[in-house]
Amino acid sequence: MVEAPKTYKDLPSTPITFFTTEDNKTGTWRTIRPVIDKEKCTRCYICWKFCPDLSIEVEKEGDYPNVDYDHCKGCGICANECPSNAITMEKEMEK
């Protein structure tokens, strides 16, 4: 595990990165959430293909897609593109 720099002394000579952005939980941006109806889903993976946020996950061919709500920004492309209308966008619960 790489440690994040704590002071200027820890900085490398060249400004390089240390981590990926996966800890950045962009799911907090969302106001509407996609919900997949597996009854209607034909596993065409169009939602997976068009998800800009890599938040539609399919483990392997044949599996149903799942939504990663930690990162899904709720753009709604998946619901708009789904040819079977298997995805609906639902309002996030008010806090």
Partner: peptide, 23 residues
């Protein structure tokens, strides 16, 4: 794989400049 010279926010940018000054 690393990213070289990418966007850095004000909280660390000065530290990179300080390194140049020291070097």
């Amino acid at each position: 794989p690393r990213r070289f010279g990418g966007l850095t926010m004000p909280d660390w940018w000065s530290e990179f400049r300080y390194r140049i000054a020291l070097d």
